[in-house]
């Protein structure tokens, strides 16, 4: 059985450092397997957050050789094992202990985003009709597992710590899912431009590169949102056109559902004759 050296960050908010561990490895192992092995055999108090081991819960985010990745989805065969493999916690968020960070800031940000606001129901029974093609676009964004690797890699948060003025790629994806939803009528563009800090994004595409779900965050969420903000605030010709355009649809009728529906299910109901 082969051996490999792992260099794992140990410590808490007061300080810490890397600690080396030599481990036995075998075919098919992922980094999380190694961390568990170390936890079981060499460092019982090593703190690590994990849950599904299948790349779907987004719990085991860390930085492996400096790259934000899910530990459960990083095979050892994809890493150069002739040198120590470094495993560190996400740098963008406050450290709790060892590999565990406090990502609660993200949940606070999410609360500030205007929730789903559907238009008046299309049918008398309070339901809507949607075309599958209109829902397809936002389905991509709903693949997000909230691992926050995109938040971790974004230099606006990571390097410049602009957590108060910038919501980060994860929440641009969330906002795009709402803004582009065929039923939603809320306008979040002023929030994006102002407190959302969309202008801070300088399109490095790092968020897209690290997304374990393969969401094209920059091309399909951030840039389309930037273009919508340009429509609203920076394009004088568009502003002129808006004067002659019909007024937007009024807010939904009283009693319309407020919870965010599952587009897939709702879309399925759209197969009814229209």
């Amino acid at each position: 059985m082969a051996q490999a050296m792992f260099r794992i960050w140990r410590g808490d908010a007061r300080g810490g450092g890397f600690q080396d561990f030599t481990v036995q490895i075998s075919d098919g192992m992922v980094v999380l397997d190694v961390v568990h092995q170390i936890q079981a055999e060499q460092a019982n108090d090593l703190a690590v957050r994990w849950n599904c081991k299948a790349g779907k819960c987004g719990s085991c985010s860390a930085e492996i050789n400096g790259h934000p990745k899910l530990m459960c989805m990083t095979r050892l065969s994809s890493l150069p094992l002739d040198r120590p493999v470094t495993v560190e916690p996400m740098r963008t968020f406050p450290l709790v202990r060892d590999l565990v960070t406090d990502v609660s800031w993200n949940y606070e940000v999410k609360k500030r985003i205007k929730p789903f606001q559907p238009r008046t129901p299309d049918a008398a029974d309070g339901t809507w009709r949607m075309d599958q093609r209109d829902v397809d676009r936002v389905q991509e964004f709903r693949k997000c597992i909230e691992c926050f690797l995109c938040q971790d890699v974004c230099h606006v948060l990571r390097e410049h710590q602009l957590h108060r003025e910038y919501i980060g790629p994860r929440f641009y994806v969330h906002t795009a899912a709402l803004e582009m939803h065929p039923l939603d009528v809320a306008n979040r563009l002023a929030d994006l431009r102002g407190p959302g800090g969309l202008g801070y994004c300088n399109i490095t595409k790092c968020c897209t590169k690290v997304c374990p779900e393969g969401i094209k965050i920059t091309d399909n969420a951030i840039i389309p949102l930037k273009e919508r903000v340009v429509d609203e605030f920076y394009d004088p010709v568009r502003r002129l056109f808006r004067i002659f355009r019909p007024k937007p649809q009024p807010p939904p009728a009283k009693g319309a559902p407020e919870a965010e529906p599952e587009p897939t299910r709702t879309a399925a109901s759209s197969s009814a004759p229209r």
């Binding site: 400096g66 230099h155 390097e159 602009l162 800090g197 801070y200 790092c206 690290v210």
Partner: peptide, 17 residues
């Protein structure tokens, strides 16, 4: 930044705002 997760040479940042 110089590249993803690589430290930057300056502290100030305005972005495209």
């Amino acid at each position: 930044p110089p590249n993803c997760t690589v430290r930057e040479p300056r502290k100030t940042y305005w972005g495209e705002r």
